[in-house]
Design a protein around this nucleic acid. Structure first.
Lengths: 118, 118
DNA sequence: TTAATATATCGGAACCTTACGACTTATCCA
DNA sequence: TGGATAAGTCGTAAGGTTCCGATATATTAA
């Protein structure tokens, strides 16, 4: 518990405020589950909602929030909308979280997307 | 945008709720700054408060919160209290955040702790 | 002992987040 | 066209977070 004098590696507070905003968006169990799924494939709002056990309009709100802050993009196909991860750094943060809290393989809990035919 | 059928790696929602709690605690610019500093040395409440530009009783509240959720431990020495990181996984998450948002070397912005003498 | 310093606690105000029901819009299909 | 399905929007109520001033406690120094 002895500090030799040296320079500190710090991030300025304004940037940390941005980082905190992103972490707030991550900090919700259903949003984490959705991101965990979207890392592994494309899913519709309804599929993500079902896996989280919430109404689809609630899932929709979470997804819009994540889209607004740059985590996701979406593509509409017919009356379905597929979300995808666009923020590449999410990968490593989600890995950290999984390393700390664990994951397990489960059978696909929702209908998976059928190959798209234009 | 085509998903071959395969198993998903998911974390159960209860565990994700715990993870979300931890992320909420991380999600504050002053707490991030404090953790960034504590990764690099031992600091008192007052030093951490000064670096964040907040009153020391506000810093104290943040530190207690992080202690309650298992991120930190503290040691009292005289009328000062030194906090230290105990949750080892914080290291990797902070690295992810720094990789995404950046850090820069700055001159020690606060008084550094003098070698302790029992 | 008294004064000053360092930290912590408490109650309350302002603000933000979430979930919900009701409603809207867009698309598909019979 | 009309009904069903998928997704999104809006207002609101409940609950949580953060900061602040006031105050309390512990420790050191004079």
């Amino acid at each position: 518990m002895n500090n030799p004098p040296r320079k500190l590696q710090l991030t300025d507070l304004e940037t940390l405020a941005q980082a905190a905003e992103c972490l707030k968006v991550l900090a919700h169990p259903h949003r984490l589950r959705m991101l965990q799924m979207l890392r592994q494939g494309d899913f519709t709002v309804g599929e993500l909602a079902e896996s989280c056990g919430v109404a689809s309009h609630v899932a929709s709100e979470h997804l819009r929030l994540m889209q607004r802050c740059g985590f996701l993009e979406s593509v509409k196909e017919g009356r379905r909308r597929y979300y995808q991860i666009t923020e590449t750094h999410l990968e490593s943060i989600l890995e950290c979280i999984e390393a700390r809290f664990g994951v397990k393989k489960v059978n696909t809990p929702t209908t998976r997307r059928a190959p798209s035919s234009p």
